[in-house]
Design a protein around this nucleic acid. Structure first.
Length: 467
RNA sequence: CGGGACGUGGCGCAGUUUGGUUAGCGCGCAGCGUUCGGGACGCUGAGGUCGCGGGUUCAAAUCCCGCCGUCCCGACCA
């Protein structure tokens, strides 16, 4: 057994996290504090997420567009709660073209305001509704304590913005996208987050209701993986986004917004990663299989097997860099989390076989050279399913029911602690915050998302330490 | 902004307390050879304004002053 490449998770989880990002060549710090250089391997993972999510966003009838990075300050100020929520982390440009600007402009922390301004012109009639837009963009929220992927001053995301004729339509949209996110997490990222509603203290600045997806990382801390907001008429009022009804009355639109960011890459690392590195779900992995030549003389066979697998539509890397030691290459691919490694050496070729190794379990088996096309896809499906199964089981194990806030505050603060929301309330929430804990979300007793006052009253609070 | 450190080849560090040869070490990098089924090894080699500016001194990475920058800990967020 070779000595471990990474600091074990059990020894120092934050250090493990940093090391795995560095050694898997995913990302590094940019020259300005809080910025991130996303390296090809990390970016390829993000692009996979983008592709999967973009397809789902289009499939639900949304169109992509692009709005400016710079936002006039007065825009942000129009919605009182919105500006208050974002002003501490706002980056403001004061100079341009060599001189001080008369009107400073903000670098977007999110785009509700610019998009709202445009929508107010684009929407005139009920026939213009619903208006379903999405944009892929970078945003800036100045961070004092940055962490790669989890919290950076600039990050990449997708933000959806929609306008509807009724509250019911907006609510349906909010919940629909919440579900789209859940599907992405489960079927692609192999993570099964808790779907719930944010308390008023954690609600998005300017929203009427915020719905969230919260997952537990391996160290027992929670991470918000996505949010979907019902904005009510708050922004419609601030930006005068109205429409004429069929009856000829003028009414304000009901709006939503929803987003998923590069932060989910952090979740992926911390949910599935182990002491050997990343473990990527096949649906997401930029390379699902790496075919590795043990010796130079087996390179041709490797190329052939890779070709067969690519013909099936699989993403395949071929590693015939025999100049580098075998062990070294094995370790590197494990760090990068490629789900299946196929090793082909002289011994395999002699027996007309190859060695197939699963990254998730480490299990090795010798299979016939000709069977790649049948064995590999099957194994990829198995890995995808088992990663989700493991992650879900671990999260369940780390979720405990508790009696009251005292019990939480006196405990070790690990995992989700669940109790009736009425037993927490605003006062209990403050106490939790003082102890570095927070109510991550509220879930209705039957497991659904609470949408009414009554459902909130009877809901369960999920409490955890959070990233 | 308050508290604690740190700045020396690409990266990680030693050397600074007590000034004194040619500023070392590990990793990485280049060449050659032997290796190759779980981070290989040997030999050879390249690579340094010791954060910046000033001062003290025969002599400064080392002492003094100033500046700059970075990291860690305390009030927000996807």
């Amino acid at each position: 057994m070779a000595k471990s490449v990474l600091t074990p998770q059990s020894e120092d989880f934050p250090r493990w996290y940093q090391e795995v990002i560095q050694k898997a060549e995913m990302a590094e710090n940019g020259p300005v504090r809080g910025t991130m250089i996303i390296r090809p391997w990390g970016y390829a993972i993000w692009e996979r997420i983008q592709k999967e999510l973009d397809e789902r966003i289009r499939a639900t009838g949304h169109k992509n567009a692009y709005f400016p990075l710079f936002i006039p300050m007065p825009f942000l100020e129009r919605e009182a709660e919105h500006v208050e929520g974002f002003s501490p982390e706002l980056a403001v440009v004061t100079h341009g073209g060599g001189s001080e600007l008369g009107e400073p402009v903000a670098v977007r922390p999110t785009s509700e305001t610019v998009i709202g301004d445009a929508m107010s012109r684009w929407i005139q009639s009920h026939r213009d509704l619903p208006l379903l837009l999405n944009q892929w963009a970078n945003v800036v929220r100045w961070e004092l304590r940055p962490r790669l992927f989890l919290r950076t001053s600039e990050f990449l995301w997708q933000e959806g913005h929609t306008a509807h004729a009724t509250w019911e339509d907006a609510q349906a949209e909010t919940l629909r996208m919440h579900e789209v996110y859940a599907d992405l997490m489960q079927s692609v990222l192999a993570i099964d987050p808790v779907l719930g509603r944010k308390t008023d203290t954690e609600r998005f600045a300017g929203a009427e209701a915020t719905y969230t997806l919260e997952a537990l990382m391996r160290d027992g801390k929670a991470l918000q993986m996505g949010t979907s907001h019902n904005l009510g008429q708050n922004f419609a009022r601030a930006f005068d986004i109205g429409f004429s009804t069929p009856e000829g009355d003028r009414e304000l639109c009901w709006m939503t917004s929803w987003g998923v960011s590069t932060r989910v890459v952090g979740a992926l690392i911390m949910v599935h990663g182990d002491d050997r590195g990343l473990r990527l779900p096949p649906a997401l992995a930029p390379a699902q299989v790496v075919v590795l030549a043990v010796r130079d003389e087996t390179s041709d066979v490797c190329q052939r097997v890779s070709g067969e697998l690519r013909a099936l539509g699989l993403r395949v890397e071929t590693d015939v860099d025999t100049h580098t030691g075998f062990g070294r290459r094995v370790t590197d691919w494990e760090l990068k989390g490629v789900p299946i490694r196929i090793e082909i050496g002289p011994r395999d070729v002699e027996e007309d076989s190859m060695t197939l190794v699963r990254r998730d379990t480490g299990a090795k088996e010798s299979v016939a050279l000709g069977s790649a096309a049948s064995v590999v896809p099957e194994t990829l499906r198995t890995i995808q399913a088992e990663l989700l199964g493991q992650a879900t089981a671990r999260q369940d194990e780390m979720t405990t029911d508790v009696e009251n806030v005292d019990e939480i505050v006196s405990g070790d603060g690990n995992g989700f602690m669940r109790l009736p929301w009425v037993d927490v309330s605003a006062d209990g929430e403050r106490r939790l915050n003082e102890h570095g804990l927070s109510v991550r979300c509220l879930v209705a007793p039957e497991g659904s998302v609470p949408t009414t006052e009554g459902a909130i009253e009877s809901s369960l609070a999920y409490v955890a330490r959070a990233y």
